[in-house]
Nucleic acid binder design. Structure first.
Lengths: 248, 248
DNA sequence: TATTTAATTGCACAAAAACGCATAAACACG
DNA sequence: CGTGTTTATGCGTTTTTGTGCAATTAAATA
């Protein structure tokens, strides 16, 4: 087996299970531990995964770790401020959940006038602080992990909505693989959200770039705006400068 | 399980419950106490949590935990503890919003197993901290005043539910006028909630007794339980000792 | 104060990683 | 073709890391 094939195999395992054990790979690929370690090291150097004692974890897994730290917060405020320029008075906006979206809501100008649909209770509570925003909370099963409503009932209701703009966070975005996610239900949810909105803006910190997870939400073409904390001209965004995708 | 995964697990627990017990983690993760202690120590070194005898607390525990602002919190905790006796495993419970209900949710035993429908986002978020509770958030227009969902859509959905018990706070209760309220929409909402539940429990602090407001929600006969912070034998409750109304 | 419960410390052991070295296949090029 | 070079891999040996055990100390509780 060629090195490249091994690398691909490892990355598939990572995307599938979020983790690999060195010992498992030794067995599966039938090579020495050293080879696996070298492989993992090389993938780390390429920034494709995260190495720990005993194996490796997916990058996204790792980054979900320090979400609550202050450093990420500054980036998120930066993202939020950029995203605000997308909101015009009178708009109907649909939002997901997550810390980035929440930060966005907190940064909104006080006098903004709009209708917001959201699947996140926390976002709803935050939006309620604005006098001229009408808030509609989309109900359904409540996910303990993601802190948003999900399930068939939510999807049905989304299908009855037509929003001008959908704002969502993401755990992974990739130039060719597009938007991907790990959980089936969240995946379905995001698809439905995108489907019922004229345009979609993805808010994500740069750590989430160039990652692809196991379930596909939509191709990059379905997204209208990509908002990161990086400067518009940053090299990391080069691969995302495609037709129809506005970067800010 | 890799060390990093354990750390991640612990942080999740901390973010969810604001605290963890060493002994719980030993069980959940199936490792020795020593390992858990070392894990906790390492997370402390990284500044991610705060260690105490018996377990650890979230770092934000001190700063963000400002419950002193909740009016009459002690009374509400007392009410909450009494109300918990009404909940049996397997029940389908419907709750409203308000600080009393929120306090009730916070006091629930950790291992409780039930299905909760709620119109309050904050209650939903709080309920999500219990592993064995299924949470369904009823969606609709979001009221900035009451912090609950309301409107036709909510009423429609309530009509499709059959709950064992409805828990609600109230702004007024009166021996002859029954439950009353000031706002039309909230009034409609409460009617619908009572209608779809086999039994209704009203949680209220004693100062709401003997008050009657503009709009009638239901007669006192429609209520099964009245829960206050007062002793069962207190004179203030004398007028409420009517047939079918259990006072506790 | 006594008693239980948790935390600390030092130690041992196994698993994994790192490092240097040897080997061999693949490649480059006159 | 032959020879030097690069690249990929595996084998020992040494370090580091992760974990559990036992004895002791400290803390909470009655």
């Amino acid at each position: 087996m060629l090195k490249k094939e091994r690398h691909d195999f490892i990355m598939r395992q990572i995307n599938l299970h979020n983790r690999v054990l060195t010992s498992d790979l030794v067995q599966l690929l039938n090579v020495s531990e050293d080879t696996i370690r070298r492989d993992l090291q090389e993938l780390v150097d390429e920034g494709k995964l995260f190495k720990v004692h005993g194996g490796a974890l997916s990058k996204s897994y790792h980054s979900s770790f320090d979400d609550s730290t202050v450093y990420a917060r500054d980036s998120k405020i930066g993202i939020a401020k950029k995203a605000i320029s997308l909101i015009k008075d009178g708009m109907v906006v649909l939002t997901g959940g997550g810390t980035t979206i929440l930060e966005f809501v907190k940064q909104l100008p006080q006098n903004i006038e709009a209708t917001f649909f959201t699947i996140s209770p926390l976002v709803a509570v935050e939006l309620a602080k604005y006098d001229n925003i009408e808030v509609v909370l989309i109900g359904g099963l409540f996910s303990k992990n993601s802190q948003v409503t999900y399930g068939g009932h939510v999807i049905t209701q989304l299908s009855e909505i037509k929003a001008d703009l959908c704002l969502m966070g993401t755990s992974a975005i990739h130039p060719t693989d597009g938007l991907t996610d790990t959980y089936w239900e969240i995946n379905q949810l995001k698809k439905a959200m995108i489907a019922c909105s004229k345009k979609t803006a993805v808010l994500c910190i740069s750590e989430k770039l160039d990652i692809s997870l196991r379930l596909k939400v939509c191709p990059i073409e379905s997204i209208s705006y990509l908002v990161t904390e990086l400067d518009e001209q940053n090299d990391a965004l080069a691969n995302y400068r495609v037709k129809h995708l506005n970067i800010l």
